[in-house]
C-alpha cells in the first residue's frame, strides 16, 4: 500500500470557496436580474387563448355568495372573485367578465361560454366526464359548522350533536359513516335550509367543505363558528370544458398563485385564515 496525503490547504480551500461564492453570486444576480426584467409572466407550455380577446370569462353558480362572490359596483369581491382577478392578471388578461350559470349546468359541462368556472367545485369522477379540473387552489376537507358558542373537540362530542344533512350531498355519507351521531340526522332540503336550521337551533351542526364553512362563519361571526375539520383529501379546483386547450396554462397559473402566497392572502382576507388554522378533529376513516 502506498500513501498519499490530503493537505489541509486552507489557502486553497479559501480560494475555492471564494471562487465558488463569486460564481454563485454572479449566477444568482444574473438569474434574478434576467427573471425580474422579463415582462412575460406566463410559464413554459401552451399560452392561454380566451374566448374573448383580453378578457377572462368566468362562470359561477351563486351570486351573491358570502365571502366568495359579492357584487361590488361593477366588480366582485370575495375569495373566489379575488382568485379570478389574480388568474386574469397571471394570464395577462386585462379584464374579468363574470357569468352566472346554474350549478347543475356547470357540472354537466355547460359553462355558458365562459373560459372556466370557479364555483366551489370539488372534482369527482362523474364531473370529470364533462369537465377538466386544474390542481387544487384550496383544500376542502369536511368541516363542522356549529352555532356560535357550541363546542366540539373530539369524536364523542360530534356524536352527541344533532346533525342536519342534505340528502343529495356527498357529505351526508361522512356524517352517517364517520361521525355516526347518536341521534338520527335531520334531513333538510338544501344548504340554505341547513343554515337556517342551524341558526334557529333546530340542529347543532352541519358538515360543509372547509372553505365554505369558513366563509360563512367569517361573514356571520355572531351566528356561526367552525368547530373543526375532519381529515380528507377533497379540494376545490378551477373547472374548464372537457378537452380545453387552456388547461395547462390555467393549471400552471393556479399552482403559481398557491406558491406565491396569493391564495393564502385571499383566504386570510375572506375566510378568516387558511385551513391549517382550523382544529383537526380525529374521527375514524
Amino acid at each position: 500500500m502506498t500513501h498519499s496525503s490530503t493537505r489541509r490547504a486552507s489557502p486553497t480551500r479559501r480560494r475555492l470557496l471564494g471562487l465558488t461564492a463569486l460564481a454563485a453570486l454572479a449566477v444568482a444576480v444574473a438569474s434574478v436580474g434576467l427573471a425580474g426584467c422579463s415582462s412575460d409572466s406566463t410559464s413554459a407550455g401552451r399560452r392561454f387563448r380566451p374566448a374573448e380577446d383580453g378578457v377572462l370569462t368566468v362562470a359561477t353558480a351563486y351570486i351573491p355568495a358570502p365571502a366568495f362572490w359579492m357584487p361590488n359596483f361593477q366588480t366582485y369581491a370575495g375569495f373566489e372573485a379575488g382568485l379570478a382577478y389574480a388568474l386574469a392578471d397571471r394570464l395577462d388578461l386585462a379584464e374579468v367578465r363574470v357569468v352566472q350559470v346554474p350549478f347543475a349546468d356547470i357540472v354537466a359541462g355547460d359553462l355558458g361560454g365562459a373560459d372556466l368556472a370557479i364555483s366551489t367545485l370539488t372534482p369527482t369522477a362523474e364531473r370529470e366526464d364533462h369537465l377538466d379540473f386544474t390542481s387544487a387552489y384550496v383544500d376542502a376537507p369536511p368541516a363542522v359548522l356549529v352555532r356560535d358558542g357550541t363546542t366540539a373537540s373530539d369524536a364523542q362530542d360530534l356524536k352527541d350533536l344533532r346533525w342536519g344533512v342534505v340528502e343529495v350531498s356527498t357529505l351526508t355519507e361522512v356524517v352517517r359513516d364517520r361521525i355516526r351521531p347518536e341521534a338520527e340526522p335531520v334531513e333538510l332540503a338544501d344548504r340554505t335550509a341547513e343554515l337556517d336550521a342551524l341558526a334557529r337551533g333546530r340542529v347543532d351542526a352541519v358538515l360543509l367543505d372547509l372553505p365554505v364553512a369558513q366563509g360563512i362563519a367569517t361573514s356571520s361571526p355572531s351566528t356561526y363558528d367552525v368547530a373543526g375539520q375532519l381529515s380528507g383529501s377533497e379540494h376545490l379546483a378551477v373547472a374548464l370544458p372537457a378537452g380545453s386547450p387552456n388547461l395547462e396554462a390555467v393549471d400552471s397559473a393556479v399552482r403559481a398563485l398557491r406558491s406565491n402566497g396569493t391564495v393564502d392572502r385571499l383566504a386570510n382576507r375572506w375566510l378568516g385564515g387558511t385551513g391549517g388554522k382550523v382544529r383537526l378533529i380525529r374521527v375514524a376513516d
Binding site: T20, L25, V27, S31, V32, A35, N260, G261
Partner: peptide
C-alpha cells in the same frame, strides 16, 4: 451548486412579492 443558485434566483423572483431589486437583495 450553480444549478441550485439559479433555482434560488428564479424561484425567488417568481414567488417574491417585492421589486426585482428587493428580491435580488433578499436572495443574495
Amino acid at each position: 451548486t450553480l444549478a441550485l443558485v439559479v433555482l434560488a434566483g428564479v424561484a425567488g423572483s417568481e414567488s417574491g412579492s417585492g421589486s426585482t431589486t428587493s428580491v435580488l437583495v433578499e436572495v443574495a
